[in-house]
């Protein structure tokens, strides 16, 4: 699915340069659930931006879904982002003036899908995430968890090869965060490749593989033998709530 080798990224801000990534090699197979952790400034977001084709590496190669993308132009990047990658952001990044439905339609719009089909698929996606009665709400009329679910529906709309989520639970309380994690786990069970960045170990424990970054380098790559199950945790929380 993803194969990067000796990928590096150096930001130059006027007088001095910041090496954000210092040569990272990595492979992610289809169907994996990977969490990237590390201290603030260790290069996690930089890495995600490169994987998501939002940015270009300073050096190294990147093979996405069997295709070397190192030498593609902006238009091809845009098209690959559209078809292969679904982004989920910490800040949701929904368009505030569009309804949930329209927001979900957006990525399909750029895929050239006809309005009728877009509408149908957006409704399906939102229904799947339990938002069937929030289709015509604007982001400011929805809770954080609901907004993030809209964002996930949008990321999934074009049936991407991979979901890239940078701190998707960062702006949510722990229970809502768990709800989002259970969605990712559910998606992953059905075969979607998920890569998420988090600095919360607890969140990372829901993945099946944890990559640890420090100072622009990959310092650990561990399998999670017994991932936490967000659905069970939520169940337990609810029972505790009911007892109290």
């Amino acid at each position: 699915m993803i194969k990067i080798s000796k990928l590096s990224k150096t930001y130059s801000t006027g007088t001095f340069t910041v090496p954000a990534l210092k040569g990272i090699s990595l492979e992610i197979e289809p169907g994996e659930f990977v969490a990237i952790t590390g201290a603030s400034g260790s290069g996690k977001s930089t890495m995600m931006n490169l994987l998501g084709l939002l940015d270009r590496p300073s050096a190294g190669s990147y093979i996405l879904d069997g295709m070397d993308v190192s030498n593609l132009d902006d238009n091809e990047y845009a098209s690959l982002r559209n078809r292969k990658i679904g982004f989920v952001f910490q800040a949701f990044n929904l368009l505030p003036r569009l309804t949930a439905l329209k927001n979900v339609e957006l990525s399909m719009l750029y895929a050239g899908i006809k309005l009728e089909e877009r509408r149908k698929r957006a409704v399906e996606g939102l229904t799947l995430l339990g938002l069937e009665d929030r289709l015509h709400h604007f982001p400011n009329e929805l809770s954080g968890g609901q907004n993030q679910r809209v964002a996930i529906a949008r990321a999934l709309a074009n049936q991407p090869a991979i979901i890239l989520a940078d701190e998707p639970t960062g702006a949510l309380d722990s229970q809502t965060g768990l709800e989002i994690m259970s969605i990712f786990q559910e998606l992953n069970r059905h075969g979607t490749t998920v890569v998420l960045v988090t600095h919360e170990l607890n969140i990372a424990q829901h993945s099946r593989r944890i990559l640890r970054m420090a100072d622009g380098l990959l310092v650990a790559d561990e399998e999670v033998t017994h991932p936490l199950d967000a659905r069970e945790e939520l169940q337990a929380l609810r029972e505790k709530g009911a007892e109290a």
């Binding site: 238009n75 845009a78 098209s79 982002r81 559209n82 368009l95 957006l106 750029y110 895929a111």
Partner: peptide
């Protein structure tokens, strides 16, 4: 600006 960024992330080309 942010809207533009979001649209680009979702696959809008510069031309779009």
């Amino acid at each position: 600006t942010r809207e533009i960024g979001i649209r680009m992330a979702l696959g809008a080309r510069r031309k779009d």
